[in-house]
Nucleic acid binder design. Structure first.
Length: 430
RNA sequence: GGAGGGGUUCCCGAGUGGCCAAAGGGAUCAGACUGUAAAUCUGACGCGAAAGCUUCGGUGGUUCGAAUCCACCUCCCUCCA
């Protein structure tokens, strides 16, 4: 059945490279196996870049294997140099420890901790923190050849490129991660490490070390980097990174992100980010190709992924807002509906008449709709600013008191400001 | 420790005394066209409604005037020891 897993992954395009390809399918087929994937705390939340590996763990678990999610309490203190253009700043131990906590919790929601192949979260700080330098150098470092390490593609650009460089600290990262694999092999019988394609060098390092230290034969599997057809970076928008934490990226914004996926990417993303079968996705693609006009792929993608990350409630909230703003006429909603939208996560700001910003440009940049007043000016020129559906006329400065009068409010206290086609903000009278 | 090269606005990268808020590209935002897609075209892109204000690693200095010259400091890179 697991070779079925591999062929499904292959059909999804989720396999980039495999170490031990000849025997991996057999190994997976004979009995439930343990595998791991590492997540380093580089922020207080994972972002959608980590979603592919996280979901990969789940795919293996659904196929009957046991996933370990490793949180890099130790490696997060060092910083992975793989394919990074420059050295990064070190974060303080207490900051990293705090992030570790958050990641543990976050990763946990995607894998199942019940049943026979229950998942486990481990932290590599547990086995590195007590190790002294000499032991590390003699027992671990001795197995690594510098000649070999500097050959790795992942650090080559740092070593060869003029104007950059790599510290010993970051260079050592690979050894730490390799040691993780050998430890998990020893104590958890973990025989497979998965990761993004940038992790190939680190993974093969771990495979070599495990063989040298324990004579164990272990496997590695990497997933392709998520790339967009237009070549721009996946997972970033004007607002910045798309986080998995609902407090950092609301389910609504998250949902909108997927809904805005390009046609060229949407079916690939369905294969990457959902558990819909490859056949089902092919059907959707086929149906979209037949249909005139707007395809359904984005809708399905947004529904599926939002459900996975934010649950049924988060999805429902995101859909309610989307429905109200983009499908219906938002300014025909009743007061209860508007309250609900605010609760659902539509960006909302109460207006206190005493401390309201005097100009519209200032107000909109204060609430984060735009990053500078210039954008508002630009939008005004294009008649792209609307309050409750009515375009705002004129050029800045525009008096906010005139814009937000109770006469033009919905139900006496609501104003929906729209800037451009997609940005909405709800203001309420206090 | 020695010798040399470098730190420019989100990123890359021009700019070597006034014409510089600083070329060009990318990213981003808005408009048109569309389907909340792509491509294309248009506009914006340090802050400010404007007057104006604040930027070119840091601090001082020279000058009527500095991103550009000088001094010191700091960080990075290359080679040598």
């Amino acid at each position: 059945m697991s070779s079925a897993l591999l062929s499904d992954l292959r059909a999804r395009g989720l396999i980039f490279q495999i170490a031990g390809e000849d025997t991996l399918a057999d190994w997976l087929d004979t009995e439930p196996r343990t595998l791991y994937c590492g997540f380093d705390p580089t922020a207080d939340s994972l972002h959608i870049g980590s979603l592919v590996p996280v979901l990969m763990l789940r795919r293996f678990q659904l196929a009957g294997h046991r996933p370990l999610a490793l949180v890099g309490g130790a490696t997060g203190l060092i910083g992975d140099p793989s394919f990074k253009a420059s050295e990064r700043n070190l974060n303080t131990p207490d900051v990293v420890a705090n992030w570790v906590n958050k990641l543990q919790h976050q990763v946990s929601q995607f894998i199942d901790f019940e049943g026979e192949n229950s998942a486990k979260v481990v932290n590599n700080l547990d086995w590195t923190t007590g190790m002294d330098v000499l032991t590390f150098l003699r027992d671990v470092g001795k197995h690594f050849s510098i000649n070999n390490m500097i050959q790795k593609e992942s650090v080559k650009q740092r070593i060869e490129r003029e104007g950059s460089g790599i510290s010993f600290t970051e260079f050592t990262y690979m050894i730490l991660q390799s040691y993780d694999f050998s430890e998990l092999y020893l104590h958890h019988d973990c025989g497979l490490q998965i990761g993004g394609s940038d992790q190939w060098g680190n993974i093969t390092g771990g495979i070599d070390l495990t063989r040298r230290l324990h004579g164990g034969q272990v496997f590695g599997l990497t997933m392709p980097l998520v790339e967009k057809a237009d070549g721009t970076k996946f997972g970033k928008t004007e607002t910045g990174t798309i986080w998995l934490d609902a407090h950092k990226t609301s389910p609504y914004s998250f949902y909108q992100f997927w809904l805005n996926t390009s046609d060229k990417d949407v079916y690939k993303f369905l294969r990457y980010f959902t558990f819909l079968s490859v056949e089902k996705i092919a059907e959707i693609e086929e149906a979209d190709a037949q249909r005139e006009g707007r395809p359904e792929g984005q809708q399905i993608l947004a529904d599926e992924v939002t459900q996975l990350v934010h649950g049924a409630e988060g999805l429902a909230a995101a859909q309610r807002i989307t429905q109200a703003l983009f499908v219906g006429e938002a300014y025909t909603l009743g007061p209860d509906d508007l309250e609900q939208l605010a609760l659902d996560g539509l960006p909302t700001t109460p207006l206190k008449s005493s401390e309201i910003a005097p100009t519209l440009t200032q107000l909109l940049s204060d609430v984060g709709m735009v990053t500078s007043g210039k954008q508002v000016k630009d939008a005004l020129k294009n008649r792209a600013v609307f309050i409750n559906g009515v375009p705002v006329e004129g050029a800045p400065p525009i008096d906010t008191a005139l814009c937000f009068r109770s006469e033009n409010a919905l139900h006496g206290k609501y104003w929906i400001v729209r800037l451009g086609k997609k940005k909405y903000h709800l203001f309420t009278a206090e």
